[in-house]
C-alpha cells in the first residue's frame, strides 16, 4: 500500500497534495489516541467538564439555594480540613484530615487482613475438599444474603462504639467475595497438575500450598479486589454510626451540621483512597501473577 502511494506521489505534478498526506491525516488521531498522554487527556475531559459546569452554575459559591457548594468552596474546605490549625473551636475539622484518613485506612486494612486470613483458607478448603464444601459452604451461603448493613446493630451490641465494630463489618463484608472466588479457583485446578504433583511425591499439604493455591491465585485476586471495595463501603457505614472517628464519622457529622463542603471533600477523599488501595492490589497481582504475563512479553 505504501508502495503504490509513493509511486502515485511521484507521478503527480509538484505542488499537489500527495495521497500520502491524507493517509497521514487519518493516522494522526489514532497515534494520539494510543499514546499515554492522550489517554490521560481523554480520561479527564468528562470530569473537568462536570466540575466546570458545576462551578459556573453556582452563584455566590453555591447551587440549589445554598444546598450544594461549588468546587472552589469544596477545595478551600478541604484545605482547612487538611492543613488548618488543630483544636480551633469554631471549626472542629480543621487539621484533622490526615488523622481521619489514617483511622479509616487502618480499619480497612485490619478488617481486610482478617478477611484474607479466614477467606482464602476457607475457600481453598471448600473448593478442594468435598468434606470442606459440605461443612462450610451451606453456612456461608446462608449468611451471605444478610447485607453487612443489617449486621450493624448486632456489631454495635457486641463490640460497642469502637473500632472493632468497624473492623468486624469490614472483615465480614470482604470475606464473602474472597471466599467465593477462592472456592471457584480451587475447584477448577487442572487435574493433571495435581496428578503430576502426586507422581513427584507431593503430600496433601504440598498439593494445597504448591498446586491448588497458585492455581487459584488469579481468581483469589478477583475476590480481593471486590472484597476491598466492600471493605471501604463497610468502613464508611460503620463509622457513620458505630465509631467516633474516621472519614465516615466526619461525613455524617459534617452533614448534621450542614457542612456540605466538608461532606463533598470527604466523599472525594474516600474515592481517592479506594482507588489507591485498588491500585495497590493490582500491583500485588501483577507481581504475584508475573508467570502469566511472561508469555505475552
Amino acid at each position: 500500500m505504501t508502495d503504490t502511494s509513493v509511486k502515485q506521489a511521484g507521478s503527480r505534478p509538484a505542488g499537489m497534495a500527495a495521497p500520502g498526506s491524507r493517509a497521514l491525516g487519518s493516522t494522526l488521531p489514532r497515534i494520539l489516541v494510543n499514546s499515554g498522554l492522550a489517554q490521560i487527556v481523554l480520561a479527564l475531559i468528562l470530569p473537568v467538564a462536570i466540575v466546570a459546569i458545576w462551578q459556573l452554575a453556582g452563584t455566590n459559591g453555591s447551587l440549589f439555594g445554598g444546598v450544594l457548594p461549588t468546587p472552589d468552596r469544596v477545595v478551600s474546605a478541604w484545605w482547612i480540613w487538611a492543613f488548618g490549625p488543630k483544636g480551633m473551636g469554631l471549626n472542629p475539622y480543621s487539621g484533622t484530615w490526615l488523622a481521619n484518613v489514617i483511622f479509616s485506612t487502618q480499619r480497612v486494612a485490619q478488617g481486610f487482613l482478617v478477611a484474607i486470613l479466614v477467606g482464602v483458607p476457607a475457600g481453598i478448603w471448600i473448593g478442594w475438599s468435598r468434606l470442606g464444601a459440605q461443612i462450610l459452604d451451606p453456612t456461608v451461603q446462608m449468611l451471605r444474603p444478610i447485607p453487612i448493613t443489617a449486621w450493624l446493630p448486632f456489631s454495635l451490641a457486641v463490640f460497642g462504639i469502637s473500632g472493632f465494630s468497624a473492623i468486624f463489618l469490614i472483615a465480614l463484608g470482604a470475606f464473602y467475595p474472597i471466599v467465593i472466588n477462592t472456592t471457584q479457583g480451587a475447584r477448577h485446578v487442572e487435574r493433571n497438575l495435581v496428578r503430576a504433583a502426586l507422581m513427584m511425591g507431593a503430600g496433601r499439604f504440598d498439593i494445597l500450598r504448591r498446586v491448588v493455591l497458585p492455581a487459584a491465585l488469579p481468581s483469589i485476586f478477583t475476590g480481593l479486589r471486590i472484597g476491598l471495595g466492600i471493605g471501604w463501603t463497610a468502613v464508611i457505614v460503620s463509622e457513620m454510626i458505630a465509631v467516633k472517628s474516621g472519614l465516615g464519622y466526619v461525613l455524617w457529622d459534617a452533614y448534621y451540621v450542614g457542612r456540605m463542603d466538608v461532606v463533598i471533600a470527604d466523599m472525594v477523599s474516600i474515592g481517592v483512597m479506594g482507588l489507591l488501595s485498588d491500585q495497590l492490589i493490582l500491583l500485588a497481582e501483577r507481581w504475584a501473577l508475573s508467570w502469566r504475563l511472561a508469555g505475552a512479553r
Binding site: E190, N192, L193, R195, L198, M199, G201, L217
Partner: peptide, 20 residues
C-alpha cells in the same frame, strides 16, 4: 498403590506448573 516417584509419568500434554 498411590502415585509416587517410583513411577515417573510423562503426560500427553506436558502438565508443567505454569507458576514455576
Amino acid at each position: 498403590g498411590k502415585p509416587g516417584p517410583d513411577r515417573g509419568v510423562v503426560f500427553q500434554e506436558a502438565a508443567l506448573f505454569p507458576w514455576l
